[in-house]
Design a protein around this nucleic acid. Structure first.
Length: 739
DNA sequence: AGCACGCCGACT
DNA sequence: GTCGGCGTGCTC
């Protein structure tokens, strides 16, 4: 009677069998009868209805005969529980109701005398078609199939599931990130055939790396090499990425490259077009508009194009036969998706590479600890230039200390140490000069004038700021005035106003170099390129324009400010920012000079001078290993009211070797980068009411137990939902804001 | 999330 | 006697 096989892929009981604890429900006699519809509200009743073995219901609509059940991921309700719901497939929808199709379903209806009433229309995706459902009750029919376009294909679903699991998040949240909203116009356009694979590219500038040509060759021959690539400074890396992508296409497979921002994606896009011509790839970036974005996404999903270059949202792009994933500059915080569960492009793409058996190219001018770990663990190989190639490509780097150097009048006007002023003046004779200024608001507002220790509130340790009107000191967290501050570290009473912003630096430089044009590139108003003519270009980190022919010099001001942040990654990030600016400067042979204003004894400063990001990352990794910090361990944060956090910690079934740090009170949200933000599971603010005291605990597990940690956190979270605990908690895997 | 059902106090 | 409090459970 009941079907011989349990539903494919179903996790539940075999269809037609139920535990004996539900005696009052009629035992389904067989699948087809079981699925006969009782819903009256289908206007498009198919005329020639085929009968199942026992179509006993006179008013029933005909159902698809082959696989009459559609398992649906319903978008809205209960998404915390990550459940699928089974619906019957009306015969009229049989052809369209393919796995991955978007559907509308009635959800939450009640049954009155065998008829279904009410129920809200919800969006969903068909996850799979089944011969039978393991749901014991009668199935409601699909309300409609919005489109037969299979957008949530089985491999994309599997990826979303894996990402949700890795981050203790819900499938629904990840689906939101992975599947773009539907637009009907691009869907109606016919799918073209993909172009034939291009020829394998020449190594080009990859020849500058000992293992570069071999890496490219492996890709072209269908291999899956995984490399952590330290790129040489200069303008060649976009083309090098393009060649790696082209080599993968040559093997008949697809490729996906994710870059931190649209400017850089545009450079790789242009390099790919130059190398292959149009038609082989699409760029997937914000700012395209929803329709064009969907058109390109569809082109990728339909296999019309085999390569995608884009920003972080492209990490889910459904590239077919994935042969290579590329992440450029994974230390850039833009690679962290701000929406729950906040997946990181590097992690998602490493997951995809592993699952798809694809290669990976994790490249950048610098190297993150995570990159160093991938090499240390043997998962990836280093792809590095030799010392000689670095010497040829990199500018000369000099350091000067920034103590008491304001002797010269012009230099003082520019707030520049004198040697920096002189370097700029000399370099301006032959080209543009880049001045990198830390972003305001990114650095401690005030610091000790002697030892540079950030000035902190004596009550709550929040950062102090000087009120513009009165000039008095106040804490930006608790608001308390700080009457007689002195440095907690060295006892000095002198304060130093932290950093001059880009705009004011530009004004002052303009006065110090009256005949030289000054351009700024920053948060609002980012310049992509500047001409190769003499000019001062003041930029904040990440916004440096590329100069035609390279900058003659770069000045990196206020190194201390980047390093003074109470952040695990402060050193790594500082070095990353300096390298990205320094890489835009001409090679030393052509006179390129970088001058960094900061203590030459600091490890990141030394790494810049030696141009050794890999060594720096290795040392950071060793330090993290010693302290058992991520990524050597995996961490998650649990934030909420004290009782809620305590409850989660108490019910958490932690894996072997786990430990808990805290809980500690969380500072009230301080400014833009505060502990707000949604993430993991438990979405928005964990604060029930505003201003309620919150605590945060960090949970840490040894390497290899990340999945168990995520599973345990999610179980504890779901447990609270099921128990209807009113106090919300927020759970975040790989929290970004741990100091 | 909504929206049912279900078992105990003050009203026409 | 009934209307209604929102506690608990279900939604294919």
């Amino acid at each position: 009677m009941s079907s011989e096989h349990p539903p494919a892929g179903g996790t539940g009981r075999p269809a037609g069998r139920r535990p004996p604890s539900e005696p009052d429900r009629p035992e389904p006699a067989g699948q087809v009868e079981q699925l006969t519809l009782i819903d009256p509200a289908d206007p498009a009743a198919p005329a020639g209805r085929r009968r199942g073995r026992g179509g006993r219901q006179p008013g029933a609509r005909a159902l698809a005969e082959h696989l009459p059940v559609a398992r649906v991921a319903v978008d809205k309700p209960l998404s915390h529980l990550d459940q699928f719901f089974d619906y019957a497939v009306p015969l009229a929808m049989d052809a369209d109701a393919v796995p991955g199709a978007r559907v509308r379903v009635r959800f939450g209806a009640r049954v009155v005398e065998g008829r279904r009433e009410g129920g809200r229309l919800e969006d969903g995706f068909i996850v799979e078609r089944l011969a039978a459902s393991d749901y014991p009750g009668p199935l409601a029919p699909l309300a409609s199939v919005l489109s037969p376009e299979p957008v949530l294909t089985p491999p994309l679903l599997a990826l979303c599931r894996a990402v949700a699991d890795r981050y203790a998040g819900t499938l629904a949240d990840v689906l939101q990130l992975a599947v773009p909203p539907r637009r009907s116009i691009p869907e109606k356009e016919p799918a073209a055939d993909p172009p034939p694979p291009p020829a394998a590219p020449e190594p080009g500038t990859w020849a500058r790396y000992p293992t570069g040509p071999g890496y490219l060759d492996a890709l072209a021959r269908g291999g899956a090499p995984r490399a952590v690539w330290t790129a040489l400074p200069g303008p060649h890396w976009p083309e090098e990425i393009a060649r790696a992508v082209a080599a993968t296409l040559a093997s008949g497979r697809g490729a996906l490259a994710v870059l931190p921002d649209g400017r850089q994606a545009a450079r790789v896009d242009a390099a790919l077009t130059a190398l292959l011509g149009p038609g082989h790839h699409v760029a997937l970036t914000a700012g395209l508009g929803p329709e064009e974005r969907y058109r390109r996404w569809l082109a990728c999903n339909r296999g019309t194009v085999r390569a995608v270059v884009g920003t972080r949202a492209a990490m889910f792009a459904p590239v077919r036969d994935l042969g290579l994933v590329v992440v450029w500059d994974d230390g850039d915080s833009s690679h962290s998706e701000p929406h729950a569960p906040q997946p990181h492009a590097r992690e998602v793409l490493a997951l995809r590479a592993t699952d798809a058996g694809a290669g990976m190219l994790l490249g950048g001018l610098s190297r993150t600890v995570e990159g160093a770990q991938l090499v240390a663990s043997g998962w990836a190989h280093p792809l590095e230039p030799g010392r000689e190639a670095i010497r040829r490509a990199a500018p000369r780097v000099r350091t000067i200390e920034d103590v008491d150097l304001h002797r010269d009048d012009a230099a003082r006007t520019a707030r520049l140490p004198h040697p920096a002023w002189r370097t700029a003046r000399e370099a301006l004779a032959s080209g543009p000069v880049l001045v990198q200024v830390p972003r305001r608001g990114y650095v401690p507002r005030l610091a000790c004038g002697r030892c540079r220790e950030p000035a902190r509130c004596t009550a709550c340790a929040g950062p102090l700021e000087a009120r513009a009107q009165s000039g008095t000191l106040h804490c930006t967290w608790c608001g308390r005035p700080e009457a007689d501050w002195h440095c907690a570290a060295c006892g000095s009473f002198r304060l130093r106003a932290s950093v001059v912003g880009a705009r004011r630096t530009a004004e002052e430089l303009g006065r110090a170099f009256p005949r030289v044009p000054v351009r700024t590139s920053g948060r609002d108003g980012v310049l992509a390129t500047v001409p190769g003519t003499p000019a001062l270009v003041v930029a904040t980190p990440g916004a440096e324009p590329v100069a035609e022919g390279g900058y003659a010099a770069a000045l990196l001001l206020d190194a201390w400010a980047l390093l003074a942040r109470p952040d695990l990654r402060a050193g790594e990030q500082a070095l990353r920012r300096w390298l990205s600016a320094a890489a835009l400067v001409r090679p030393a042979d052509s006179g390129g000079v970088v001058l960094i204003v900061g203590d030459p004894g600091l490890r990141p400063v030394q790494a810049l001078v030696r141009w050794d990001p890999a060594g720096h990352a290795d040392r950071e990794l060793a330090e993290r290993a010693e302290l058992r910090f991520p990524p050597v361990s995996r961490m998650a944060s649990v934030t909420g009211t004290p009782s809620a956090v305590a409850d989660v910690l108490a019910t958490l079934r932690l894996p072997e070797g786990a430990d808990v740090l805290g809980p500690v009170p969380v500072e009230p949200a301080a400014g833009p980068g505060g502990p707000g933000g949604s993430g993991g599971v438990g979405g928005g603010r964990p604060a029930g009411r505003a201003d309620e005291a919150l605590e945060r605990a960090l949970v840490r597990v040894p390497p290899g137990h990340g999945a168990a940690l995520a599973a345990a956190l999610k179980a504890a979270y779901i447990g609270r939902l099921l128990r209807k605990e009113p106090e919300p908690v927020q759970i975040r895997v790989d929290p970004v804001d741990i100091g």
